[in-house]
Amino acid sequence: MIKFQNVQKKYDNGYVALKDINLTIDQGEYVAVIGLSGAGKSTLLRCVNRMHDISTGSLLVNDVEVSKLKGSEIRNLRRGIGMIFQSFNLVNRISSLKNVLVSFVPDMPMWRKVLGLYTKQQKIEALEALDRMNILDKAFIRVDQLSGGQQQRVALARTLAQKPSIILADEPVASLDPITAKQVMTDFQRINKEMNMTVIINIHHVDLALEYATRIVGIRSGEIVYDGPASEVTDEILDHIYNGKLEEELTGN
């Protein structure tokens, strides 16, 4: 369970990117976060695994107060949370399999870490993760020779191998074509259902968000302006999330 309570995030330059966020997400939910560019979606996501620190308020992940963690505790938290990026963030020069294997590294003894020696068991697990994403046949191909969609699946396989309970995905389909984007969204759906993982996705394609996610969180200039089931999102609500500023200005004048 993830629980934001009165969370505020102020960047070092004084910009307040999140204002008084209250949000509870239960284990196994599939949540899409939508909103304009600069609304604070990435910031929200990155607070969950402490890639960013929150300024005030409290943020509980599985009953642990995230802002109080230090050093190796942060790394332990992150072990349990998978993160997916728009640009995949794979190591380009090495094979898909090796990219997936990297997710075992933090738990390996030092000498294995330095030499990069993996056990057979780890290799099998990594291959299984690739198999689950249907790209087992690309296991020994360098990732820079894969298409964008295939690369995103390797990234997903890497995250799966990490066996997280939560997956944070920051615009995972933004650089994919519509068909591949749907496939990747289906992948998320499958992982979410089969493995009961919490999935939180930042996404700009409203149609995809409504089609695949079960819950929608709308953010506007650092505030949550909608939070409810995907099935109840109407055009007025979308207008409110995306054009709220315009609306406010019009009514204000």
């Binding site: 291959l127 198999d131 087992l136 046949d137 020994f140």
Partner: peptide, 12 residues
Amino acid sequence: NTVEKQLLNEPK
């Protein structure tokens, strides 16, 4: 299974 087969294909 296919996974183990693929493991054997690992370039040595």
